[in-house]
């Protein structure tokens, strides 16, 4: 089975995020980029599938700071091939990114057809789209998002896929391969790969660089951000006051406003 994992680098929110001078983007100076958490789950699911059904896992990422680390880590974990699409600086939006990924997948020989294209169901910087549905649309493949489990019937070329629904309920689908799946959680938490193995991968394996085919604007142009700002952070809880009944009612209002009642 041939699996492609799309991996994207996103800002690490452990770091204090700062705004760029124009107030429209993040200041990249102190930015630390890490692999999108959900993409890590996608990679894990791919590796689990590979272990179960045998096959290959190819990880494809758009260029961004620290992407090499992420790709070598993927190789050390057991991916067979890592591909980096150059000519980017990691600031493409999700939509343009998906566009470029789809272009690359179809233009680089040997990548397609693949049985499965997996990626994270979401990323913290998804402002103008979601990778899985966009890529599936561009490649004309079926897709499902928020997937938590995949099992494959390799002879029939279909996968049984579980997708999350509210309240812990899951929906079961039968998907004809090839397909694009947005992974919410791999069946097991992403594996740990010791530093020594990553270092060994850096020595013995290589990341393949491919230039992006054309300028990527996703067909609709990049979504212009007018302004970015930090939401006010509360250092201390807002205290609710009054009689127990009054407090309870205030709290119910708050919960209702957030759709929790």
């Amino acid at each position: 089975m041939k699996i492609i994992v799309l991996l994207k680098m996103v800002p690490d929110v452990v770091e204090e995020l700062e705004l760029a001078a124009d107030g429209k983007a993040l200041d990249t100076e102190f930015l630390r980029m890490i692999a999108n958490e959900f993409d890590n789950h996608a990679l894990e699911e791919a590796l689990l599938l590979k272990e179960k059904y045998s096959g290959t896992v190819t990880v494809v990422a758009l260029d961004a700071p620290e992407v090499d680390d992420a790709l070598f880590t993927a190789l050390a974990k057991g991916a067979d091939q890592a591909l980096k699409i150059t000519d980017g600086d990691g600031t493409l939006g999700t939509r343009a990114g998906a566009y470029r990924l789809a272009q690359t997948l179809s233009s680089v020989p040997g990548l397609l057809p693949a049985d499965l294209i997996l990626t994270g169901a979401q990323a913290i910087d998804d402002l103008d789209g979601l990778t899985a549905p966009l890529v599936s649309h561009l490649l004309g493949l079926p897709q499902l998002a928020i997937v938590t489990k995949i099992s494959v019937d390799t002879t029939a070329g279909v996968a049984t896929v579980l997708r999350e629904f509210p309240g812990g309920v899951r929906g079961e689908y039968e998907v004809k391969l090839p397909a694009v799946l947005g992974i919410q959680a791999a069946e097991k938490p992403p594996r740990y790969v010791p530093v020594a193995k990553v270092r060994a991968a850096m020595k013995s394996q290589a990341i393949q660089s491919v230039p992006a085919a054309t300028a990527a604007d996703g067909g609709v142009g990049l979504l212009p951000v007018e302004e970015m700002s930090k939401p006010e952070v509360t250092e201390h809880a807002q205290m609710l006051k009054g009689s127990p009944e009054e407090i309870a009612n205030q709290l119910c209002e708050i919960l209702a406003a957030r759709g929790l009642l």
């Binding site: 010791p194 530093v195 020594a196 193995k197 990553v198 270092r199």
Partner: peptide, 8 residues
């Protein structure tokens, strides 16, 4: 037992 990380 994470010798590589220690080394790093």
């Amino acid at each position: 037992g994470e010798e590589g990380l220690f080394e790093l």
